[in-house]
Structure formats: structure tokens, C-alpha cells
Design a protein around this nucleic acid. Sequence first.
DNA 1: GGCACGGGTTGGAACGTTAAAAGCACCGGC
DNA 2: GCCGGTGCTTTTAACGTTCCAACCCGTGCC
Lengths: 336, 336
Amino acid sequence: MVATLKQVAAHADVSVQTVSNALNAPHRLRPDTLQRVTRSIELLNYRPNRNARSLRTSAVELIGYCVPSWQGGQAHLVMDQFLHALCAAAESTGRHILLFTAPAGADGMSVYDDLHARRLVDGFVLSQTETHDPRHGWLKDKRIPFVSFGRVWKETTQPGPYVDVDGAAGCATATRHLYDAGRRRIGFLGWPRTSGLAEDRLAGWRDTCQELGLPTDGLAVHCAEDTFDEGARGAASLLDATEPVDAIVALSDILALGALRELTRRGLSAGSDVALTGFDDSPLASVVSPALTTLRQPIDLIAHELINILTGPAGDEPTERLLKPELIVRGSSAPG
Amino acid sequence: MVATLKQVAAHADVSVQTVSNALNAPHRLRPDTLQRVTRSIELLNYRPNRNARSLRTSAVELIGYCVPSWQGGQAHLVMDQFLHALCAAAESTGRHILLFTAPAGADGMSVYDDLHARRLVDGFVLSQTETHDPRHGWLKDKRIPFVSFGRVWKETTQPGPYVDVDGAAGCATATRHLYDAGRRRIGFLGWPRTSGLAEDRLAGWRDTCQELGLPTDGLAVHCAEDTFDEGARGAASLLDATEPVDAIVALSDILALGALRELTRRGLSAGSDVALTGFDDSPLASVVSPALTTLRQPIDLIAHELINILTGPAGDEPTERLLKPELIVRGSSAPG
DNA sequence: GGCACGGGTTGGAACGTTAAAAGCACCGGC
DNA sequence: GCCGGTGCTTTTAACGTTCCAACCCGTGCC
């Protein structure tokens, strides 16, 4: 049915090894032999058996990725984009992504260990990194290759290589953009400060405000969860203050959309009355009206960096890449 | 580093084959031998090398899944749930999911062929099935195992096994639910009828209305795309009619949320003034207020059926499973 | 003419596993 | 005492590939 190296060799009247060389080290063959072998390969429609190859070379060219469980309605709105990008990046190096599920935290580590020990994957891409995430240290100890999308927060050193988006820089850009649009009282919609990510983005807004001489006292609201309702509630409290805000930087698109709903409910016009920005450029950002100004994570670049770091030369020092998100300006901050 | 069968065999003082049998056919061993071997396996922390096994048995226990590209802001809001479920289902049979990308339509088929020929996967799960989808026939001709999530529309026979959600039954349930809540003029928000899925769901609404003696003329709107704006526009036209609707069955959550926005904009209360249902139970459905009544696809069941069919005995006749969605009643159709 | 050299090619072994067949010890029946 | 099982274990031979060492042969050098 499917041709093997041996059959191709017989057809081209050379040894098996020569056919292998034709594919893996063509420079070793005399041009005429190479051509003869290549013709046979095409004629027989030969495709190398990946299992045999992996057995010999002990590299499976597969990268494990744990598909997050959508606990508690937490929507991963850009996960499909990320997966697509990660896949494409892996394929550009001849690799593929293997999906698996695992319990959260340290409990799931035996799954990682098992996949690696059974040689189903060469290494892992981690995402959904959490504060004090135990996975990184665990994998590092076991010397299992990995790279993380997202920093490990509140640790003195990063255990292993990572790629992340500079949330502080992003929120700084958004804040400055609002300032340039004439806003002078800019509020912040965030999450509780126990989350490293939340604190990072908060800092970007706070520092920029202070730099620009804008007030920050009482202008940061910490929403309990990432839902429309919480976003609306947070926005309401910012609008009900004795001195209401004229702009809001939200830590996520969901919160921003909640705020948008609240503005609309009050008969305020997002963009002209109150300017608004989100974070992530989720698919929803462009389908609401006015469309949401938001910070787009460079997903393709992130994915390529992740794969590069994971599959590149195994240097000792951890590789760290911090990428800047791009401000996508839409109607919610720049009407007309 | 990692123990092999040979090392375990030496440790337990038996032959390699006996260790293999201890794992794959324990009934062949004498109880005491089995115990001795098992102890050695655990002591050495042995894990079978999957590549070697696959080479020998020519089954890789991997299932290919083409990760959809999110063309044109089309949000796959339940894709992460589906992937998680598919993964879990595969793992419950000792298999895993391998992700890949491929151009849409017939152009991408060489990718499928290649993955199969190189023995990276045993078979495929297709999703995002389209009207006149060429993939099914192609795979069937090549005798590459696959199962489809979603029927192939507008063909006389289904090329190969599939699992799908009965959209007609779902919309019928929703319509009947609205009728039971006292609604007598129920509109439908759909997509153009070139889509088989759209026509299926439309039929469920239409037939049920006729059965209940409700009007349907001019009460179906076909939105050009799956966006909030289109949903809002469609809802507006149903509300502006000389005889406005008192309920709306929407073909998707996105359209329903657009309609919800339009209701809110007009000062109408969703649930009491106009009742509303969506389709998919996407994460957004429960975070808006009022929360959206919607039809939940039995994702876990779908995933299990897909894997069962694909990995079950290779019968000749195509296996077909049509599953009913579950109506999740929330505030948008039943206030209070 | 012998020898080192190097490009091109080959045979043999190995990667770690499982299928199939062979071996071995013990037992009951005639 | 031999025969045919039966129950457990080992031997042998693959699966399809790549690594390594060897080989062959023509060339240039002393």
C-alpha cells in the first residue's frame, strides 16, 4: 500500500541508505544518482514513516499543549486564534501540536511527565500561566523542555524561558492615547491585585497617569470576575463619583464591553462622552458599536517566538521575550 | 535515563516478551511472575516507548483535527469547549488529538493525505462542515478513516459517518417553549438559506409555528453575517413591522445578543416585552443581562460519539448520530 | 607502483516494541 | 512409558528508519 524505503531503493537500484541520504543529506549523492532516486521517490509516492524515524532519532517533532478547561464560564475568546497561530508556527518547522488535558496545578504534572516519558512529545508550551504556577519549576527540575506563554508572577526569578505581552506598556499606550484625545480624568477597570497580570496592567495605567500629571486616586476599580456585569458595575461606580471620569482603560475586552453597556444604558455615547479601551482585540471588539478600541496581542509573533525558543538550541540561560501589544483605535475612543 | 523493556526484563529476571505480556496480556503470566514483573516495572518507573510500539503495531493512537482559521472575525465561541471535550474523549480511549492547519476546501486535502501517509495520525475528526464540503468524499475515496462533526448538506447521501446536532428539533423546542410562555407572534433570525444549517434550523421554527397555528409569513429575517450588528438590524425589522413580534428565535447566540442590544436600545425589556432565544450556549449567553435562553449542544456527548465511531469497529455502513440540543431557560424568555 | 585521500555508496547494527512460533515442564490417561 | 494437552515462558523475527564503519574506486603524489 504505502511505499517504504526498501521498495524505493529496489526501484532506483540503490541501497536503502542512499535513498535515506537523498532525503536527509542530498549533498552526499552524485547528481545523477540523486535525480534517479528522486524520480523513484515521486513515482512510488514515498512518504517517510514518522514512527520509524522517531524511534531511531528519538525525536517525535510533537509539542504538547494542555487545552485549558473553561472553568466557570471564563471565556477564552482568543484561544482559537492562539491555537491556530501556534499550529502554524510549529508546522513551519516541521512539527505539530499534540493536545491533552490535565488537572490544574501540581496535580496535573504526572500527565506531563507521562507524555514525555512515553515519547509522545518532545516538550511543552504552557499557557494560562498563574501566579505561583507550580508547573514551571516542576518541569525545570525534571529537565523536560518547555516554554511558557506568560510570566510566572511574584517569583524572584523566572523558572525557564517565556514569551509574554507587556501589559504595562499596553495600558500605558492606551492611557497616552486617551490623553492625546483630550481626556484628563481616566479611570481603570481591573481585577483584584492578587493577580500578577492585573497588577502589571494597572501599573501601566497608574504610572502613565502620574507621568502626565493626571489623577489616579479612587480611579481604579477592581472587578471580582471577568464578566459583562462586573464591567458594568465597575463603570457605574466610576461614573457615579462626585467627579466622574471622562475615559476608562479596561483590563479586558469583556470588562470594556460591560462598561460599554453601562454607558449605553445611561444614554452616554461611548467615544464622545466617555472614551473607552479594552485589551485583547477579541472577536467581539469589532462587532459591537461603537467598535472597541483595544490592545491586540501580536499572536502570530508570540507563537513563532514560543516555537523558536522551544525548538532552538538548548542554551542554559532562560530566554525571555516581552512583546508589545498594538493599539487598535476604533470608535469607542475616537468617534467619527 | 528512561527504562526500557530490556532493563525491566533483566531486573525481574524474565525475558523481554514476558514484560511486554505483563502489560498487554497479563492473564498469560503466572500470578507470582506477574507480581514480580509489575514490581520491577514500578521500581524502574518504566513507560513504554510509544514510537516503538506504533512502529510495530502500525497504529499511532493519534487523531488529526484541523484547527479552523478564524476568517473574518467569525468567532468560534464554543471551540475551546469542543476541543477540551474532544481531547478528554480521546484520552478516555488512550488516544490523543494532533492539531494541524490546512487550506480550506479541496486544496487542503494533500495535508490530510500527507499526515496519514507519514503515519502521524490514524484518522481525522472533521468539523466546520460546509455545504458541499469536498473533504468527506475525498477521504472516503482514499479510504482514510474519518468522522464528521456536522452533516454534509444538500447531498443525497452522507459520505461517511457523522455526528450532528438536530437544529430543527432544537428550534422546534425553543418555539414551543415560547408558545407555552404565551407568545403568539414568533419571529426568526437566521442566515441566508444557502447554508444547510440555516435551513435546518429555520425549518424547525417554521414547521412548529404551522403546527401550533402561528403565523410565519414575513417573520423570518436572513442576516448576512453572524454579527451583533446584523442581529440588531434583523431584530429591528421584526419590531418595526406593522404587526410586531412578541418573541424571537435566533439561529445563533451572536444574533440573539444583537437582538438583545436592539431591544435594550428601544427601552424594551427582553423576557417580558419580547422573549428571545439563541443557539449554542456560548459563554456570553450567561454573562449578559437578562441572561440568554439558548440551546446547548451536548458537547461532551458529541465528542464521545465522534471518538467512538472513529475508533470503533470498522463497519462498512456509515454510522450516523443526530443529537438533540438542550434548552437552557434563562431570563430572556422567562423573566423573574 | 604503492599509498594516502576523499567522494560516493553500501552492509550491518541498532532504536524499543510486539506477533508468532517454538520450547519446556508438568499432568492425566491409556 | 509414551502421548497429547495445557500453562507459562523464551526465542526469533520483524516494523522502517538512521548511524556507523567499511568499502570501492578513481586521483594525485612521492
